[in-house]
């Protein structure tokens, strides 16, 4: 993965270009959120989001280019025409709807709260301890809304930084999306669930620039197509062993 990051950045250096969004549909994803979207050793974007995006493009019969974009800048990038859609496991929230439009949801997300293994914390107790989350995620917003904007919610630029602070013991819990949380538990020892699954009615949609209603409709139609012909289910089963729609 690291090799590709270098390669990708050099490619970015080389192309200070203008972009017109006519024939090739440009789709952004984060590339740092396995198993939904990440970069392989060969520099390729892979993951559930990427496969869904490719399936949708096939259903729309359009040529697509998928680009990686950091999370903090992903909405500003869409608004500024850097690309035409975001397929990056993005939750449909009221605040984001003020900036962009969304398609119909393509899966549902839940939140998990992770702590040290054997921690006797409960959700009720989280307001009194230090908890971590990635900045600009639904997890961080849930924590703020649930425990107040002045609770000790520590915001990190990346999830790994939050996980290492949890391991070190600087924070008592992390709020994050439930499938990546399962991935963290798989790869890190000494951590466990404080709450495995919180339903916050979180729908994941494809972000589209405001006013681009034609594209929104096209994506929605394509989504129905891949639901109906089994493409979606096949992709989901390949990643998660179950249909997460």
């Amino acid at each position: 993965m690291k090799k590709t990051l270098m390669g990708a950045s050099l490619a970015v250096l080389a192309m200070a270009t203008t972009s017109q969004a006519q024939d090739v549909l440009r789709i952004a994803t984060e590339g740092a959120y396995p198993p939904f979207n990440n970069v392989t050793a060969d520099g390729e974007l892979v993951g559930f989001d990427v496969d869904i995006a490719k399936a949708l493009c096939a259903a729309m019969e359009r040529e697509c280019e998928i680009v990686a974009q950091d999370w903090d800048g992903i909405i500003p990038g869409l608004v500024n025409n850097k690309y035409d859609a975001i397929v990056a496991s993005m939750s449909i929230t009221q605040e984001r709807l003020e900036a962009i439009n969304f398609t119909a949801p393509y899966y549902s997300n839940y939140l998990s709260v992770l702590g040290k293994e054997g921690s006797d914390l409960t959700l009720e107790g989280l307001g009194d301890v230090a908890i971590g989350a990635q900045r600009s995620t639904v997890g961080s917003q849930w924590a703020e809304d649930e425990y107040g904007s002045r609770a000790d919610v520590r915001l990190y630029d990346t999830n790994p930084a939050a996980v290492s602070d949890l391991e070190a013991g600087r924070i008592e819990a992390i709020v994050m999306d439930f499938l990546p949380a399962a991935e963290v538990l798989n790869t890190t020892s000494g951590l466990g669930y404080i709450e495995a699954k919180i339903d916050i009615n979180d729908q994941i949609g494809i972000g589209i620039r405001k006013g681009d209603d034609e594209l929104t409709d096209a994506f929605n139609a394509a989504l129905e197509t891949i639901r109906a012909d089994g493409t979606y289910e096949a992709i989901s089963v390949a990643y998660f062993g179950t249909d997460i729609y």
């Binding site: 903090d72 605040e95 003020e98 900045r135 915001l155």
Partner: peptide, 11 residues
């Protein structure tokens, strides 16, 4: 830190 948090919510 507060500014970046606010920006992350309203862009």
């Amino acid at each position: 830190g507060q500014t970046r948090t606010v920006f992350a919510r309203n862009f």
